[in-house]
């Protein structure tokens, strides 16, 4: 378990001082994967550097398994870093060392005997599925393989906390999926506590148990991933939904943005909803996926009915929630726009 208490990080002094983290409180229970998202400039990288103790917070505490680490003297701080494994953005491998030598780096720093280190490295290579790549240099590895080596290196000293700092940024979707799968697998096998910092909402839906949104140096919203995804009023939940383009509405219909607002939306809701409403319903766009066993997603519909309240009522019957486009000024519309902006910035 890791908890951050009133974490504050200020750079500079006096009038030039910039507060990047502002009394941030955050906690990840043992064995959970918590994603931290937020626009650039929100303080994500500073947060990462405070968690793996590369930066000392100006005030506040980083507590790992009940022990306060951020206030330790320099030498002890270096030892404390070993309890937190960090997976960096791809291409963080030393170019003149093989995969095995890269993984051995933390063991080497610790002063582990070469024999022990070899055994541990072999075990780690096996765990990340790269036993046949031990002697390969980084330039011979694909992005996904390099990142697996990065993960193995982060785990070399058996940390209880794994910090992934934009670990999948720059990887293609398939590779991201496999790296994320590996992280979840390792979490299950090793009971790791994972802090997954990213700006990619698609990745968050694949990896996270809980999600927190960082903005202006504070956690402004957090919650369980599925709850957020099925919550109509959550800005964070909205921004987690994939937002793709959709077809234009036909004459006589109105565009509605519909989100899955509960955990038990029936698979045939479109058919049933259309029957209930007794009006024309065009499917203009949709994205539905199963997250932790629950169907979540959104759809854009062109609906040939004028009575908003009736449409809303019909949707609500199936655990859905709808917002007409062009409604103007409504709270949900603003929320929607804000969510889109959030995604843009990210």
């Amino acid at each position: 378990m890791i908890s951050l208490r009133h974490l504050t990080k200020t750079y500079g002094r006096g009038h030039a001082a910039v507060t990047v983290l502002d009394h941030l409180d955050f906690e990840v229970p043992t064995g959970r994967i918590a994603a931290v998202v937020g626009p650039s400039g929100a303080g994500k990288s500073t947060l990462a550097q405070c968690i793996n103790l590369l930066e000392r917070p100006t005030s506040g505490a980083v507590v790992v398994n009940g022990e306060e680490l951020s206030g330790l003297p320099e030498k002890r701080l270096r030892e404390a870093r070993r309890r937190i494994g960090t997976v960096f953005q791809s291409s963080s491998l030393l170019s003149r060392r093989t995969a095995a030598e890269n993984i051995a780096l933390p063991l080497e720093y610790l002063g582990v005997t070469p024999g022990e280190a070899r055994a541990r490295v072999a075990e780690l290579l096996d765990r990340v599925g790269l036993s046949d790549k031990a002697g390969h240099y980084p330039f011979q590895l694909s992005g996904g393989q390099a990142q697996r080596v990065g993960i193995a290196r982060a785990l070399a000293l058996r940390p209880s906390i794994l910090l992934a700092d934009e670990a999948t940024s720059g990887l293609d979707p398939d590779t991201t999926r496999s790296v994320v799968g590996l992280i979840r697998q390792l979490r299950n096998d090793l009971d790791l506590t994972v802090v997954f910092i990213t700006h990619e909402m698609d990745t968050v839906r694949q990896v996270a148990d809980t999600v927190a949104r960082l903005d202006h140096g504070r956690i402004v919203e957090q919650g369980d991933l599925v709850e957020l995804l099925t919550s109509h009023d959550s800005l964070l939940g909205r921004s987690l939904q994939p937002r793709r383009g959709h077809a234009g509405p036909e004459a006589g219909t109105r565009t509605w943005y519909v989100t899955y607002d509960s955990t038990d939306v029936p698979g045939d809701w479109i058919q049933r909803f259309t029957g209930d409403l007794g009006a024309v319903v065009h499917l203009l766009g949709a994205s539905v996926e199963t997250v932790h066993g629950v169907n979540t997603g959104s759809a854009t519909l062109g609906i040939g009915a004028d009575d908003d309240a009736r449409v809303r009522g019909a949707l609500a019957r199936y655990g859905l929630s709808g917002t007409p486009d062009g409604g103007g000024g409504s709270q949900s519309h603003q929320l929607l726009t804000a969510a889109a902006v959030l995604e843009d910035v990210a």
Binding site: E79, R81, R82, F88, S92, L105, P106, Y109, L110, L157
Partner: peptide, 8 residues
Amino acid sequence: QVARAAGG
């Protein structure tokens, strides 16, 4: 950064 995080 990598080396520092690895406890070097």
